[in-house]
Simulated assay, not measured.
Amino acid sequence: MADIALECSCGKVKGVARNISPTTGRRVICYCGDCQNFAKKIGRTDDVLNAHGGTDIFQITPSQVEITQGQDQLRYLKLSEKGIYRWYTNCCQTPAGNMVGPKLPFIGIVHNFMACGDDSEKVLGPVRYSVMEQGAIKPQDTTKSMPSAEKSAGKFPIGLMIKIFARLFIDKIQGKNRPNAFFKSDGTPVSE
């Protein structure tokens, strides 16, 4: 396991993701419209989305994340009233992570925020799932195909949902939703 530096594009926000390995998290590519709209809203489609409109995300627990500098630069965006919290940095619009809320021990750290360099495959492991592929941008060149993953799904696969909910249950019992760098102890976001 390794500790991975977290850093926004301009360097004002820094942190660390602790105990990271292919077994302590799950790497997915999400092609949903919300991930694509989020990248558009913060003006980062060119470096957040892959050629097919997917976002590379590493799913871990909030207790593994510590923001060590620039927490005052964190902002969130909800694309609908019941939508998830999509965290980014105000200074340079770097996407940080996606969360359902403060009570669930789950955060999807966006690849732009993780300082893995060329070692992401080694440190995070291969992409295990490609989800919501019905929202993917199909290649114009028909000789090219979508990026491969261990498992692909047009929507959100039942098997993955079961694994996530089982993990959430265990992590919740173990209190891995705290500490939480994105929410105060009373459950309110660290920013307006």
Rank of each mutant, 00 (worst) to 15 (best):
V16N: 00
G159T: 10
L79Q: 08
F169E: 00
G70Q: 05
Q174C: 11
D47T: 04
E66W: 07
A96I: 14
Q59A: 05
A17K: 08
M99K: 08
S63A: 15
T142Q: 13
D119K: 15
A149D: 07
K151E: 11
D141A: 11
F156Y: 14
Q140F: 10
Q36H: 01
D3C: 07
R26A: 06
D34Q: 10
E81L: 13
A115C: 12
T143Q: 05
N180I: 02
E66F: 10
N180V: 04
C35S: 09
P102G: 04
L77E: 05
Q174I: 00
R44C: 06
E192D: 09
E7N: 06
K155A: 12
K103H: 09
Q36E: 02
G33V: 06
R26I: 14
P102E: 01
E81T: 09
T61A: 13
V48K: 08
T94V: 06
C8R: 01
A136R: 10
I109R: 04
N90Q: 13
T61K: 08
I164L: 13
P102V: 03
I173L: 14
H52A: 12
N19C: 08
M114L: 15
E7R: 15
C30K: 11
F106R: 08
V123M: 10
C91S: 02
K41S: 09
C10F: 04
K155V: 00
A166S: 14
Q36I: 00
V13C: 07
I158Q: 11
P95H: 03
F113H: 05
G125N: 00
P179W: 04
K138S: 04
Y76E: 07
K138I: 14
Q69P: 00
C116M: 14
S148P: 12
M99P: 07
V100M: 11
A166C: 10
V127M: 11
A17E: 02
R128E: 15
I107K: 12
L104N: 06
S130F: 06
G159V: 02
M132Q: 12
I57L: 14
I4A: 02
V100R: 07
S80P: 04
C116P: 09
A5T: 10
G159W: 00
G53M: 12
I67W: 01
A17C: 15
P147I: 06
G43D: 02
G101L: 02
S185E: 12
E133Q: 14
Q134K: 13
P157G: 08
R26T: 13
Q64S: 13
T188P: 01
P105T: 05
A153T: 00
C91G: 01
G108Q: 10
K14Q: 14
D3F: 06
F182I: 00
D141E: 06
V190E: 03
S9N: 08
C30T: 08
L77I: 08
V127W: 02
D47M: 09
D46C: 04
N98K: 05
Y31R: 09
P189V: 03
E121W: 09
K82T: 14
N180G: 09
S191I: 02
S120R: 14
R86W: 01
E133S: 05
R44M: 11
D171P: 03
A51K: 04
M146R: 03
C32Q: 10
D141R: 03
S130V: 04
A115K: 15
P189T: 04
P95A: 13
P95W: 02
G117M: 10
T94C: 07
P189W: 05
Y88H: 12
G15P: 06
Q134G: 10
T68H: 01
D56T: 15
C35W: 06
